[in-house]
Amino acid sequence: MVARAAREIAPGMVVNLGIGLPTQVVNHLASDFPVCLHTENGLTGIGPAKGYDTADRNLIDAGGAYVSTVPGSAFFDSATSFAIVRSGRLDLTMLGAFEVSATGDLANWKIPGKFSPGAGGGIELAQKARRVVVLTSHMDRAGNPKLKQACALPLTARGCVERIFTDMAVIDVTPRGFALIETAEGISTAEVVRATGAPLILPDAAVPTF
């Protein structure tokens, strides 16, 4: 699923990979692939991750992982970093999710009473990136669907998600609701339908696998 999500990145894009699963997408990009990776804490041109032995103590990504630069990287302050986000320079962001609604609402920052560490830069990424896609497990740990008709949790942003990559499927948010685009190898359409908490529009032809 991470490898499939990596194919979402087109040459020339400016991309922000959210904390968690999305960060792993970078491992599926060829070293000469033309892309500019952005991180909220003030870097464009993120290079490969660094081990503790070779890490630069002043060079982390927004998740606190040690990263490197590439030829052409730039450092800047937090205001400039979010000017990039809010002014539409970010072509794509990949975010994690607790819930996604059939209208593309995203909830990924707060579970009242259980988890409320603050949204960091997630609200601006979700609201302002030109394209927002989500990488998430299809169901939560209790086996409940994360894709729902409406989100129950506090929203990060409304109507922002365009595509969802899960361990079971690729699903688009369309004006008519969730639409199945692809299924993971070995997963049937019926299984995806059962694991999704809202109606799923199925393609007329056979569903491609990834």
Binding site: S78, A79, F82, G118, G121, E124
Partner: peptide
Amino acid sequence: QVEFNAQGILAERIR
């Protein structure tokens, strides 16, 4: 007492 801000908005408020 904790007040959460969106990160870039905290930056802009300070700026």
